[in-house]
Design a protein around this nucleic acid. Sequence first.
RNA 1: GCUGGUGUGGCGAAAUGGCAGACGCACAAGACUCAAAAUCUUGCGAGGGCAACUUCAUGUGGGUUCGACUCCCACCACCAGCACCA
Length: 810
Amino acid sequence: MNFKYDISIDEKWRKYWEDNKTYKFDKDSKKPKYYLLEMFSYPSASKLHLGHWWNYSLPDSFGRMKRMQGYNVFQPMGFDAFGLPAENYAIKTGIHPKDSTAKNIETMEEQLKKLGATYDWDYEIKTNEEEYYKWTQWIFLQLYKNGLAYRKDAPVNYCPKCQTVLANEQASGGECERCHSKVEHKHLTQWFFKITEYADQLIEGLKNLDWPEKTKRIQTNWIGKNTGSMVDFALEEFDQKITVFTTRVDTLMGVTYVVLAPENKLVDLITTKEQKQEVEKYKEYVTHLSEIDRTSTVKEKTGAFTGAYAIHPITKQKVPVWISDYVIESYGTGAVMAVPAHDERDFDFAKKFNLEIKQVITNKEKNATLPYVEEGYLINSGLYDNLTTKEAKEKIVEDLQKLNLGKKTTTYRLRDWLISRQRYWGAPIPIIYCKHCGIVPVDEKDLPVKLPYNVDFKPNGKSPLAYCDEFLHTTCPKCGRPAIRETDTLDTFVCSSWYYLRYLDPHNDKMPWDKKITDKFMNVDKYVGGVEHAAMHLLYARFIYKALRDMGYVSYDEPFQSLVHQGTILGSDGQKMSKSLGNTVTADDYVNKYGSDVFRLYLAFGFSYTEGGPWSDDGIVAISKFFQKIQRVFENFANLKPSDYNKIDEELTISMHKTIKAVTTDIEKFQFNTAVARLMEYTTALQKYQTKSERNYAQEKEAILNYAKLLSPFAPHYMEEVWESLGEQNSIFNQSWPLYDENKTVSKNIEIVIQINGAIKSRIIIPCGLETSEMEKIALSDEKVKNLLIGKNIKKIIAIKDKLVNIVAI
RNA sequence: GCUGGUGUGGCGAAAUGGCAGACGCACAAGACUCAAAAUCUUGCGAGGGCAACUUCAUGUGGGUUCGACUCCCACCACCAGCACCA
């Protein structure tokens, strides 16, 4: 019999679980399913850090409870194994990404097992393996066939250091997400996924999801839906028009010029001879601006006049056409109508270049100062005078529509997802270019397009695959003539946008997944991961899932029903943990010293899971002591001999039911810290009971067995040992989670407070559940209260059941 | 700038509009001990009082309410997301 916790126990039970396949996932189980998923990680060379333990051990505690509650819990683990770091490491050291990744995965698996989590490793996936990326390529082909993947020449974000193109999401703020180099602009022919086609659905779908509001907002903002109008300005001498997007069509009568983005295709066409030089100079200037410089709001306005004029759709007056970098080519139509009186940017621009400012909106007091950007009433607008801005918006669009010069429209901030990467370590894009047939998708039966091993992976702006002859040269699937392969690889976010489906059927070589299985186990019931993926992975995965749904491969609308973000554990200095700051913490030191269960429990107790906070190991010793306390409680019980004494201890009963209730609901809400607090209280209650001269064996046994079960999600190895020592049937994780009786969570009597004018004056003990009228009577008959009420008039009495009585008196 | 979130003891943190600070850490005193460790007990927001007790306290200032950490308004600080998005 052993009730003591030490590290040797960890090993013993991990082996037991493995040998007995305790956590084997049974696809055919009749139990209700529960898909618990934590974002998989990138296989890094260093040992598991604190963050891994934090991310994975606590959701595992949650999963263990679910399992004991009778759910068929599916909690898989795998690796997001393609990506830049392995390739950069290869460039530095010469070690092939495939080899370093394999080695890292091996180390990480070893370490992850130390967590003592309930993963069934038969369902492990590695995104760099052929059996996985074959299907990543397959997904690309399905999107291509359905018109959701296309190629276009586009200005792209290019990181000079990583030598690759980045998605907008990976280049926000004008910096490379990975190395923080300034992002450059280049024009390249790239592959895109048409995520914009799903923009509306991606907003709509959020409504029914149990996600943090913050995350929904990030996605909504990122998609940036905006309703407004398109308005056409005819060009004087050309058979062309400038279409602008505006949300303030009510200010149309105040337009004094039109501005195009410097990259707008019309610019070259309309620029006059006289202005050619100036416009070219300005365009040149813009291409050399970094993203940061260009998007800085404090920057003074710059621009150039094209010499051309456009025709105002209503007044038919000529307005000058300018170009300026404050207009962005990729948003709206890449052209705006300028209303300097009612837009700050236009106002600044007009001031700088001495352009006309015409006020058309004013406020109620008719004393608006320019630029006036609020709502108001129209003036100087002919027919539309005196309308409110709201009325004018409707009326003007109506009129424009009659003239066929405008209409209501919606735009999005979201851009299509650029998925081409000029790198080696990723899934090759399954496309072949043939001189005769053009772009030809690889035949599905020829998948995977294998990533060759022997390449020179030094980056130089082109994919290393472009220099690999055996890869590059192939034959056209259509005409059989020599052709070449696409040499770019897929963004790793493509790999991670569908892994939750593959987990369910990881070794299927006929199809990416069996729909019968995914229909049964999707959606993910609880998805746990960092908030930093809100505008990237979580958006991409939702898009891919919806696209797959529309092609009939999956059945539901959303992949992740409920989402929890773990907070970040910072370094003890309050900074993000990073090697360069030297504030990283390795879990190993603690695990080796105290054992994994002590460490797990400390993580659970020390921080709020959704908030995290600066790391501190104050208190880990206390948890270690808490384990000794637990040990004594079990030992005390083990030494107790069954006897005839069978009196039920009310206090212990209540304590037990209360604890079951609190621990259950707290774990459900991912409030592990308070769950542990309740278990500490329960420990004290058990200790107290065990000091009694006579103890009811049956009652104590029930209390003790439930105690072990409640502790087991947090201390799985230890409680497994205790369970065995108690002579119970293994495994504790095959037992059912304790249930509580609501009636037994409260005692017969309860202390309530009596307040006079809101200040506590007395405390009395009354029977639980007493009617409020009775409570009032008792309160008024209390001696202290009586004395305090002498000479006062009672105006009102408020009584709250089982809580308080408040007497309002003057 | 816009949009959110957060703000509670020396520290980590708790509180369906109903006893603020649960549960811990640290600290202090006591018991046990030759002593220490461990363990146990007690205290622990601030001020005043020998005490019973009392006043003030959840970023600041208002408000709603019998009653506000909690709801409303304004402001301050920090954090996050977006940012010349028409």
